[in-house]
């Protein structure tokens, strides 16, 4: 049973449609990348999942049940726009927020202390938010998101504002939580970390879902028979000719070797390319070019813009 199923969601604001018939399935225990440029509708969708706003059409199912207020306690949400009460002590603040999520006081104190220890925040209980650096505030915010052991954690741009060291700490914590069984929705418009973290993604652009599936499948489907061949010339000959079915994208010197990027047309295969190359060069290494999520993202979003 999926952790979350979003069915045909429509959200209409007075002068624009924020979500247009969006459907998603988020498998239990996965890290799900919710991708899309700014203003695509990601935050609108997240707010609907958090029951901050309600959709105009469509339904959301949480763990098999229609989404209800009682599910709030099982969801953790880190909004993109971070915020804490500036004048409130960190400890009291986390206690308040976790009690709002339904934890009992004693339980909450125990869990806050666990996270304080884990993230080296030992003596932060009596500090005020306004006395902390931005990175430290982010840590507090992260604890507020996960302190009640949610089964579904929604992270909207979780790494913005973190220095590389702390970003790594938080990333490790996210992976650890996922290993323990939490399902994670990771919303971002920065693709670098997506391949590293996500099992599945959905790409939203201009209120519509334009792509979804497992990262592996998507990347596989975006292969287009382009290969990189590392080679050396047989003798002193340094020219290379290929039949028109093989389009040379790039041919450049790399250290002692040469690197050839070739696009093979649909009639031919890698074997045909190798047959054409073998008489001319010493092949040292061949690999298929698999597009990065970044490339796919750019390609999808810009092609949508052209249409």
């Amino acid at each position: 049973m999926p952790m979350l199923t979003v069915k045909n969601i429509v959200k209409q604001y007075s002068n624009h449609r924020a979500l247009d018939d969006v459907s998603l399935t988020i498998p239990k225990g996965s890290i799900f990348g919710l991708l899309g440029p700014n203003g695509a509708g990601k935050t609108s969708l997240i707010r609907i999942i958090n029951q901050i706003t309600a959709p105009d059409q469509g339904e959301v199912y949480f763990d098999g049940e229609l989404l209800q207020p009682k599910h709030i306690a099982r969801i953790g949400y880190l909004p993109e726009e971070r915020g804490l009460y500036k004048k409130m002590k960190i400890g009291e603040q986390l206690l308040y927020l976790s009690q709002l999520k339904g934890l009992r006081k004693q339980e909450a104190i125990q869990k806050i202390n666990y996270w304080f220890e884990r993230l080296n925040m030992g003596d932060w209980w009596d500090k005020k938010v306004e006395d902390l650096s931005k990175g430290m505030q982010q840590k507090v915010q992260f604890v507020a998101t996960v302190v009640h052991d949610p089964e579904l954690i929604i992270l909207d741009e979780p790494f913005s504002g973190f220095d590389p060291v702390n970003a790594q700490i938080i990333q490790d914590e996210i992976l650890e939580l996922n290993k323990k069984g939490a399902t994670i929705i990771y919303s971002t418009h920065r693709m670098e970390s997506v391949e590293e973290l996500c099992d599945n993604i959905a790409l939203i652009n201009k209120s519509k879902k334009i792509l979804d599936g497992s990262v592996k499948d998507i990347k596989r489907s975006y292969r287009n028979q382009t290969y990189i061949v590392t080679y050396q010339y047989l003798d002193v000959v340094d020219t290379l000719t290929l039949p028109p079915a093989f389009e040379i994208v790039e041919n450049k010197a790399a250290l002692d070797d040469y690197e050839l990027t070739v696009h093979v047309d649909n009639e031919q295969s890698l074997n045909d390319l190798l047959l054409a190359l073998i008489p001319q060069v010493n092949i040292k290494q061949v690999s298929e070019v698999i597009p990065s999520m970044h490339d796919i993202f750019i390609k999808q979003v810009t092609s949508a813009a052209i249409l």
């Binding site: 958090n50 029951q51 901050i52 207020p69 709030i72 969801i75 949400y77 909004p79 726009e81 971070r82 915020g83 804490l84 009460y85 500036k86 927020l97 709002l100 999520k101 915010q141 507020a144």
Partner: peptide, 17 residues
Amino acid sequence: IEEKTSRIVEVVISSVK
């Protein structure tokens, strides 16, 4: 206004109405 400008409001209303 303080809750709104500090954005804490989004965290809180993901827990309460």
